[in-house]
Nucleic acid binder design. Sequence first.
DNA 1: TTAGGGTTAG
Length: 450
Amino acid sequence: MAQVYASMQTSSVRPDVVTYSIIVNGLCKAGRVGDALRMLDGMSRQDSDIRPDVVTLNTVVDGLCKSGQVQEAVAFVEQRMRSVHGCPPNTVTYNCLIDAFCRVGNVSMAYELVGRMENKGVAQNIVTLNTIVGGLCRAGRAGAALEFFREKRTVWTEAKGNAVTYSTLVGAFLHSNNIGMAMALFHEMMTEGHSPDAIMYFTMISGLTQAGRLEDACSMASSLKKAGFKLDAKAYNILIAGFCRKKRLHEAYELLQEMKEVGLQPDVCTYNTLLSGSCKAGDFTAVDELLGKMIDDGCQPSVVTFGTLVHGYCKAGKIDEALRILRSMDESGIHPSTVIYNTLIDFLGKSGDADLAIQLFDEMKEKHVPANVTTFNALLKGLRDKNMPEKAFELMDQMREERCFPDYVTVDVLMEWLPVIGETERLKRFMQQSEHTAAKRGVRDRISAQ
DNA sequence: TTAGGGTTAG
């Protein structure tokens, strides 16, 4: 970009304000807001023959907002736009600020800015509406978002709702498992004369599948096709995962076939999903076949593939086979993950092999695989079942040293164990230390977030 | 120049 800019300055092609705005936008989108501001300063100097316009300035406002400098953006709007540059903030300026406040969870400030727009006679548009609706939905307030939409569409003449409004609301209602409302809004959108676009269809397919409504999801997929769109690999993966969860393996495999027929290459995610489904069905012959097909297709097993197999074999009580899979990862050159070790440690603990669980925990350290609270919980459960408190105390100390905070599972395990063996004091100390460090961490996080 | 979505292992 710098080269293009330099060559323009020496050639007969004269950059104008649009050129500069494009560069400022490029800098902002590349996360170089400081450079964008310097360029703006250059444009604002007395000897400059190109002055920034409202688009240049809005670009900078949005750049500041999206890089987390919301207060700086507000200061820029209040102190520089009109007085320095002679450009009063317009609809886009306010929309950028409103979005920024919504994203940090400050919806009331977003409302206040809407009020300020009204006072200053700056018109709201469809983006203003969708930004607030999106902000409320993101905050888990789908009902409030819908209410806001209903209220404003009668008042804001330029903002009556469009495909973005509806897909945002539908996504939020699906997410909160209010399928009926999502369906109703989907149909309302069509009644209002907006055709669902691909995003809307994918949102519906995903949400309905997640809710276990496979029939509805499939009929939505048919509508998508009738409307001239195509399912992509991700959409097939979603449906395949849905059928696998319902233990309808036959239909999942049919979708794999359909995927290939329409010329889509199943990816590692497709295979992992079907492997997981076949493991859960206990069909390890299908697992082996599928692994073969996967490799024939040139699809390399990933760490998730190994994790799926390890979990599948553990769940089927074949821990030796699961350990063999772990060992085979060395040859494949794929580094085992925390999840894989956690799975094995959990099942080893459950099958009464706490010693081997501890061995794997030591191996994690050698291999620099980080342990997390799930690792410690699995170990502690295994130790509780074998009543090995000394080792558990050691682990509790390690948790503290590694600043790994106990969760409700840790607390559950220790509360039903330590008091019984007369170690209530140690439990209390552990909880107090954890609360203390957690509180300190909370303070630190708040400081670094500012 | 500003607004929306979806996949796999514990």
